[in-house]
C-alpha cells in the first residue's frame, strides 16, 4: 500500500482541487486579456486532472488516469485552436481584450 494513501486523506485532494478550480474560475471572470483567460481554463482542467489521478490511485483503478490522458488531448487541442483564433482576433482588432468581442450580442 502506498505511503500517500495511509497519510493523506482523499478529502485533502478534494479541497486542493476545488481551491485550484475556483482560482481558475475567478481568473476567467476577472481578467480581460484573452491569453490569461485561456491559461485560467488550463488551470481548471489541471485541477480536475489532479483529482481524477488522486481517485485513480486511491481506488487502484487505472481508468481515471486514462481519462486524464484524454483531458490532456482535449486541452492541447483547445489551446492550439484557441491561440489560433486569438492571433486572428489580434490581427483584426490589434488587441486581445475580450470585452471588445461582444458583437454577437447585437
Amino acid at each position: 500500500m502506498l505511503e500517500i494513501i495511509k497519510t493523506v486523506p482523499i478529502e485533502y485532494y478534494l479541497l486542493y482541487s476545488t481551491v485550484l478550480f475556483c482560482i481558475g474560475v475567478f481568473g476567467v471572470l476577472t481578467r480581460r486579456n484573452a491569453i490569461i483567460v485561456l491559461m485560467c481554463v488550463e488551470l481548471m482542467l489541471n485541477a480536475v486532472n489532479l483529482l481524477l489521478a488522486a481517485f485513480s490511485t486511491y481506488l487502484g483503478d487505472a481508468q481515471g488516469q486514462i481519462m486524464v490522458f484524454f483531458i490532456m488531448v482535449v486541452a492541447a487541442a483547445e489551446a492550439a485552436v484557441g491561440l489560433g483564433i486569438l492571433v486572428m482576433i489580434y490581427r483584426n482588432t490589434k488587441s486581445t481584450d475580450i470585452s471588445l468581442l461582444d458583437r454577437l450580442r447585437n
Binding site: 490511485t57 487502484g60 483503478d61 487505472a62
Partner: peptide, 9 residues
C-alpha cells in the same frame, strides 16, 4: 479500496 494496486500508474 482496502488495498489498491500500487502499480496502477
Amino acid at each position: 479500496a482496502a488495498s489498491p494496486n500500487p502499480e496502477v500508474g
